[in-house]
Structures are given as C-alpha cells and as structure tokens.
Amino acid sequence: MAEEYRFDVFGRRMAIARNEGAWVAYLIGEEGKRRRASFEIPDCVAADELAQYLDDIFHEDASPERPTVVSILR
C-alpha cells in the first residue's frame, strides 16, 4: 500500500502519494475526486519535507486568509 499525505495548499486540496519510491501528486476536487497534478516532486524530498516543498513552489498563491500549506488528516 502506498503512503499518502494530504495538504491544503493555499486553498487547493492535494494528495501526495509515494508509490514504488516515487512521489505522485493529485489535485482533489470539491466532490472528492482526484486527478493527477501537473507538477513533479523529486524522489529525494522526504515525507516530512513535503509541506515546505509545496509551500516553496506555490508560494505565489498565498493570501492573508491562507498564508501557509497545512497538513490535512484523512
């Protein structure tokens, strides 16, 4: 079973799954369906670095209401 982490990335819900040593990113829609995201996460990024990595690449989407990437429990 792949390990999976979920985040609120400045208002967008994402799931990041590690499968066979590679990270795969998904966007999660309002209805709960997910589709493959159009960005890659390097394999060398550790699970505890995912939120910071997402913050770094999407920082331009930050707002006063959503200033950081937040981990979501499933």
Rank of each mutant, 00 (worst) to 15 (best):
A22K: 13
G11F: 09
F39W: 11
D8S: 11
W23V: 02
G29I: 00
E40H: 08
R18T: 00
A37V: 07
I41V: 13
A47M: 03
D56R: 07
V24E: 11
I57N: 02
Y53M: 01
D55M: 09
W23E: 04
S71G: 10
L50T: 02
S38K: 14
A62H: 01
Y5W: 14
V9I: 01
L27N: 14
M1Q: 09
A22N: 08
S71C: 05
M14L: 14
R74K: 12
T68M: 12
L27G: 04
S38Y: 02
R18Y: 00
E49D: 15
G32K: 02
H59C: 11
S71M: 10
D43A: 15
L50M: 07
Q52T: 09
H59G: 00
E60R: 10
A17Q: 13
D8K: 03
P64T: 00
T68Q: 15
E60T: 04
V9A: 01
T68K: 14
E20Q: 14
I57L: 07
D56K: 03
H59M: 08
E30W: 05
A25Q: 03
A62P: 00
E3M: 12
D55T: 11
E4A: 15
L27H: 13
E40D: 14
R18N: 07
Y53P: 00
G11I: 10
F7P: 01
F10V: 05
A62N: 03
D55A: 15
V45L: 04
R6A: 08
D55G: 13
Y5A: 00
D43L: 03
E60H: 06
D55S: 14
D56A: 07
S38G: 15
G32T: 02
L54F: 09
G21K: 09
R6W: 06
L27M: 09
G11C: 07
I16D: 03
Y53A: 02
A51L: 09
W23Q: 06
Y26L: 12
Y26A: 10
F58C: 09
M1H: 08
E4H: 12
Y5P: 00
E49N: 12
R36Y: 03
E20C: 10
L27Q: 07
G29A: 13
V70A: 12
A46C: 08
A2N: 12
D61F: 06
F39Y: 15
A37T: 05
P42G: 13
V69I: 05
G32S: 04
Q52I: 03
A46H: 10
I72K: 15
C44N: 09
E20F: 14
A46W: 04
R66Y: 08
D8N: 15
R6L: 11
F10D: 11
